[in-house]
Amino acid sequence: MSQNYKIGAGLGGVVLTAGAIAFGAFLSNRHQNRGYDDAANHTKRQPEGYNAQVGRSVTIRKPRAELFAFWSDFANLPQFMENVEAIEAGADGASTWRIKAPAGQAVAVKTEIASKKQDVLIAWRSVEDSEIETSGEVRFEDAPGKRGTRVSLMMAYDPPAGALGRAVAKLFLREPQVQARHDLKRFKMLMETGEIATSARTRDETRAAKQENG
């Protein structure tokens, strides 16, 4: 089971829309209710294999502003997004994400901020003509009582064409939900405990070390 993740896949909560589901449609649908109940859209039952709307929430015992500030600096994200090697900030709010791909390769994606609301939300999307189309959004809401903040992460992803695209698709299609869940859990650990839990006995046995040494 863990072998799946070792190879590593995707931005936290990558959604692979193998066909051509428009991101605009994805983003605008996301917060609407399709049914008559009050559940989040991405928890609606969907046809087998239909991953268009993957999302995940965690509750973190920290104030909204602190979490928002940490996430605002994209350079922080690779600390808990296992398959993102680095994110470099460019000019005018753009940044370049280096995502680990199969066989030691990496894919670069340039993103821009789509919208940002102080202490509430950050949304980003790949710039036009990107090799990989992607978009994501993280929302911060106060949790009830003293529980801290509810953090919800949604990401969508469309792979490049050609051989690399197919390879990446294969990788990302595997378990986008799982990756989202794990990355968010790691974010929570980092914020609440200052570190990310590992059961390794030695430094060579950590997942990061194993990834690096192949």
Binding site: R147, M189, T193
Partner: peptide, 25 residues
């Protein structure tokens, strides 16, 4: 961990953060 929702209520054996993310499923 001592800092999560459960630990703060002294429900230590339900700690949110000690089981590595990939082992929680």
């Amino acid at each position: 961990c001592g800092g999560c929702f459960h630990c703060k209520q002294q429900q230590y054996s339900a700690c949110d953060n000690s089981n590595p993310a990939e082992k929680q499923d």
